[in-house]
Design a protein around this nucleic acid. Sequence first.
DNA 1: TCTTCGTGCAACTCCATGGTTGCGGATGCT
DNA 2: AGCATCCGCAACCATGGAGTTGCACGAAGA
Lengths: 106, 106
Amino acid sequence: MDDARAGAVFHALSDPTRRQVVQALAQHGSLSASAIAADLPISRQAVAKHLAILSEAGLATSTPAGRERRYDLTPAPMTDAVAWITRTGAAWDDRLARLQQSLNRP
Amino acid sequence: MDDARAGAVFHALSDPTRRQVVQALAQHGSLSASAIAADLPISRQAVAKHLAILSEAGLATSTPAGRERRYDLTPAPMTDAVAWITRTGAAWDDRLARLQQSLNRP
DNA sequence: TCTTCGTGCAACTCCATGGTTGCGGATGCT
DNA sequence: AGCATCCGCAACCATGGAGTTGCACGAAGA
């Protein structure tokens, strides 16, 4: 039942702002919430909420560095989302195969 | 910028009920909204709304069949979501490669 | 030490959305 | 024809979530 983890990833990536945060982390890495917010038209607290959601989905980890807190991307859980998609696609292909099989048998 | 299409897929798959609808379509295929709602604890109109969102993301197509309307899964746009994930992962790996390169150069 | 900067927490607003019920209109069955 | 379904549309409600502001606390530098 890793539908929950895949769902968390889907939910985390469903917001466009959150996707921008993920991409910022993917390109630069080890950014603070304020640093990310500097490149976005929203406040630091909004970014912090997004980072909390990303952390809850396992897509980001935070480490305190002095008086600021750095966030890093951990894209491993994205595998669960891809697995969900491929699994569903496989089920669909199976259904298609069964349909084709029943068509070949008049 | 197919971030929009990937975003639509992420949004479509972010809801657990919608994922159940997708899985029902993946397994049986060509189901009506009422048939899907029969296996879920929600009303037919709620399922219809979910199907509308799935259609908007390109994940489902509907064809009128007599007095009912059949829905089929079209998992092609899921490729965009997977592409977004792999692209982001690739950027993250690049960042890691750069970090490692800068570490090897004291 | 005092100031400054960055963070975390809490309260608040506002809109999107998942869900409902209640219709009227097509379509198929007897 | 008449009835039973199945659908689509609209109105409505409640909750969640994205975003803001305000404030208090801890760490760095003057």
